[in-house]
């Protein structure tokens, strides 16, 4: 069983992506997703957290906050960063590959929601159990 809501604060460091994946995978296992859905959930979480680390800004204490929760029979993940999304000039060595992340999230999740506010950005992913 998944506790009602679980939270993890990550350093805004790509070295923490593996920690985010372990957290997501453990939650997916406790929630009872099948192997394929579990991998897809972890995959999409990794994309969302990668984007937050690359394009967002951590909170004033330097962390990025992630949550998982069971809601109405679905496993929900949220990542919040405090970026204001005022895009600067693109870095000359920017990896264009990262732009694919959102499309991959959409392909593997039942719902993807990106909310940009004045205080930051919240990406919400939702994965339902596969029909038996």
């Amino acid at each position: 069983m998944l506790a009602s809501r679980e939270r993890l604060d990550l350093k805004a460091d790509p070295g923490e992506l593996a920690t985010a994946r372990r957290f997501a995978d453990a939650a997916a296992a406790r929630f009872g997703l099948g192997d394929q859905e579990r991998y897809e959930f972890t995959f999409a979480v990794n994309e969302a957290v990668s984007n937050a680390m690359e394009h967002g800004h951590p909170s004033p204490d330097g962390t990025i906050c992630i949550h998982v929760a069971a809601e109405n029979g679905a496993l929900v993940f949220e990542v919040e960063d405090h970026g204001t999304f005022a895009p600067g000039p693109p870095a000359i060595d920017a990896l264009p590959e990262r732009g694919r992340g959102l499309a991959f999230m959409a392909a593997t999740m039942d719902e993807v929601d990106v909310r940009r506010g004045t205080s930051g950005t919240v990406v919400r992913l939702c994965k339902r159990r596969a029909a038996a």
Binding site: E97, G101, F104
Partner: peptide, 13 residues
């Protein structure tokens, strides 16, 4: 054991 969109993008290129 795991592959993300960045790595897949490199393969596509």
């Amino acid at each position: 054991t795991f592959i993300d969109s960045t790595a897949i993008g490199i393969l596509l290129a």
